[in-house]
């Protein structure tokens, strides 16, 4: 049975540690995601973002600490909530031989959607997939594939959406289009979104909170505007560089 979700929190990460033998990928981090909020998880390569997201998804077992999603402890109780979550990640593909419609049909059934055909129709209209619904997924352009992956991630109207680099390898126009759709989905659904991205403009546009990670630890956590102000910079990219290159710590020490 599910424990009641912590008040107003869709995800609670409590002293999460993940070690792969001697390598500590995530080192006792804690944070909670407010229901309906969009939070960015930022950090350089190897900062621990993917491990954190994978643990939230129940794909990785923590070495220490606890992760609860919609009141379910992950990964032990993941099956109680997986139908309410979805994700998009560059680490996975959808079967390339299947047409877009076949892929969405399979995932609609897996996620227990009632009227799968109707859901595919409405997603196809919403995400402008109608023209290539019956083409093999592997024959689409990367922009089209991203839209299909987005459709898969929305097939079950998820309450929590985990996005790992949702606009990587997209041209600026398509990336902007995807961000617009994500904004609209979050607003209409009241969904909680956790986003890992290296595109700081994207983070500033979509997220109301930023968690900065470095070497498996959280080094800062605030709204994009407050972070920019606190570091005395003009945008989030400069803040990111300060943190990645250790200038933030140097500034704090000097102050």
């Amino acid at each position: 049975m599910l424990a009641p979700a912590a008040a107003g929190h869709a995800v609670v990460v409590d002293r999460l540690t993940k070690a792969y033998k001697a390598v500590v990928a995530v080192d006792s981090i804690s944070f909670a995601l407010d229901t309906g909020a969009c939070t960015a998880l930022l950090g350089g390569n190897g900062a621990g973002k993917t491990t954190t997201i994978s643990t939230i998804m129940g794909l990785v077992e923590p070495t220490g600490g606890r992760v609860t999603v919609l009141g379910a402890e992950m990964p032990r109780q993941r099956h109680l909530v997986l139908h309410r979550i979805n994700f998009e990640s560059p680490y996975v593909n959808m079967p390339m031989r299947l047409t877009v419609r076949q892929n969405l049909n399979v995932f609609g059934m897996l996620y227990g959607c009632g009227d799968v055909a109707g859901r595919i129709r409405s997603l196809a209209e919403e995400l402008e997939l109608t023209d290539f619904l019956d083409r093999p997924t592997g024959k689409l352009s990367s922009g089209q594939k991203t839209r299909v992956a987005l459709a898969k991630s929305l097939i079950n109207n998820p309450e929590i959406l985990l996005l790992d680099e949702p606009t990587a390898s997209l041209d600026p126009d398509t990336a902007d289009w995807v961000r617009g759709r994500l904004e609209r989905y979050r607003r209409d659904r009241g969904a909680t979104v956790l986003l890992a991205s290296h595109n700081m403009g994207e983070v500033e546009r979509l997220c109301d909170r930023v968690i900065m990670m470095k070497a498996g630890r959280i080094v800062d956590d605030d709204t994009p505007a407050k972070l920019v102000a606190r570091y005395g910079r003009s945008n989030l990219e400069e803040v990111f560089l300060d943190i990645a290159r250790g200038r933030g710590e140097a500034r704090e020490a000097a102050q």
């Binding site: 099956h79 109680l80 909530v81 139908h83 309410r84 079967p95 031989r97 299947l98 047409t99 076949q102 049909n105 399979v106 995932f107 059934m109 897996l110 996620y111 227990g112 959607c113 009632g114 859901r119 409405s122 919403e126 079950n156 109207n157 998820p158 309450e159 209409d188 659904r189």
Partner: peptide
């Protein structure tokens, strides 16, 4: 757009059918 999340089922023949269908395709 429907805002309901689908219900949780402890065991689902439909999910098995989805996997079979994926390979049949």
């Amino acid at each position: 757009m429907s805002m309901q999340s689908p219900a949780y089922a402890a065991f689902s023949l439909r999910r098995i059918a989805a996997l079979v269908l994926r390979h049949w395709y």
